[in-house]
Design a binder for these strands. Structure first.
Lengths: 234, 234
DNA sequence: CAGTGGTCTAGACCACCGG
DNA sequence: CGGTGGTCTAGACCACTGT
């Protein structure tokens, strides 16, 4: 009279383990049963338990070491994941109308601070662009970008009046490594003028350097309009 | 004379796919071969290909849909992961000496803005703490915390003069959901005084609300010393 | 050196959804 | 409806590392 036994999924196991942590059955630092033991308890294959625990480890909930076993992390070294969207998508995703404007364009020898950041050689030339991004006609983001002409010489011939450098780069360099950092900055006269905010206003900014196969592609400083927030759940 | 054939690992496959994207073999938007096809090409089990592609999808490199197959993402919807450490660990991790100070403590009825954020009832009581965290004797972070006494009544009897609320909460509420957001703020008179920076200085701040099993635990506003950055690679 | 997690395999069933 | 990815299984070998 018994139908087919419901199969235990790795999601079930994750949820069950989280429940045990939540209700205090397993406390921070304590040792969990091994995979074989749990597979027996849940009556499933070890691979299923493995996937559940591997994901919990990736999420920073538990800590696994061969031979030593699996433990609940003392202070849950958790991490928040932030999507890094393209400005256009970000603005249109909020249901606002996107507009882009090129403010200035110049080809120069890379200044020292940039050479250091991107590991460029003395004398290397870069394309320096300043742009503005608008949401519903209001200034949304100031973009100060430097593109390595040694790696992307075609950038010098490209017209950035219509298409922003961000979108051009995405389709030109399909895949890349990046380092991004967030901080606060005070609006200088130029930025205050362009964003239409008071000088010295506190603004949220992101700086990102990008590499492709070990070579520097671009460096960009993005300064957001007053009051901008970046949010994540975790 | 052939020894045991080298087994193809899921890491090999990930690397190979990334190489194909990097060198332009597969362009953004293009359709990749199915799992069975790839398993045959790499001469491995489908599960191995599946794990490689599943991880690439999690990382935002590719997009998978049943029946439709797997494609390279148009604009690589990538995400940066930031570790959210406890202040003490953050400071000691930089090799600096950590010191904590409680600035003020009061039990009050939750103000309206907090009630809304944490979905509290009118009249609910909260513990309001203001603390300072020092690195090598220099003010590092200002902490403005509110703890829900309805959920954690024992907080009212706890002495936060020695141990910071953050560490107390971590060991009291082992697991929780959180929403965190980053922005820039101007130093008001109080914060400028405590952090020792000019009034109106642009400061980086994080705000976090935390829930345990659906009930609000705490809300905290963390304001960092001038020049603070949060960095990630991706 | 022995126990634990890490990974691969070959096969199977199934859910979803595009054509 | 049929092809694609999603997942589970039972078994195996291996790498790492604490004891």
């Amino acid at each position: 009279m018994k139908g087919r036994r419901m199969v235990v999924t790795y999601r079930d196991i994750k949820a069950d383990i989280l429940r045990h942590i939540s209700d205090g059955t397993w406390k921070p630092g304590s040792l969990l049963p091994g995979e074989i033991e749990l597979a027996a308890r849940y009556d499933c294959a070890r691979a299923t338990v493995n996937r559940a625990m591997r994901e919990l480890a990736e999420e920073g909930i538990i800590e696994r070491k061969r031979k030593a076993g699996t433990r609940i992390r003392k202070s849950p070294l958790r991490e928040a994941r932030f999507e890094i969207p393209i400005v256009r998508a970000e603005i249109e995703g909020r249901g606002a109308k996107y507009r882009y404007a090129l403010v200035s364009r110049e080809v120069v020898v890379a200044p020292d601070w940039l050479r250091v950041r991107l590991s460029l050689e003395p004398g290397d030339r870069v394309l320096h662009l300043v742009c503005l991004h608008f949401a519903d006609g209001m200034p949304y983001q100031y973009e100060d970008r430097w593109i390595n002409l040694g790696l992307l010489p075609q950038a010098e011939e490209t017209d950035f009046a219509a298409t922003g450098p961000n979108e051009w780069l995405v389709e030109t360099v399909p895949f890349s490594d990046a380092e991004i950092s967030f901080s606060a900055t005070e609006a200088d006269a130029v930025i205050a003028g362009l964003l239409g905010c008071p000088e010295e206003a506190a603004l949220f900014q992101a700086e990102r350097s990008t590499w492709w196969q070990g070579r520097a592609v671009t460096h960009v400083r993005l300064v957001f309009q007053r009051g901008h927030r970046m949010t994540a759940r975790y």
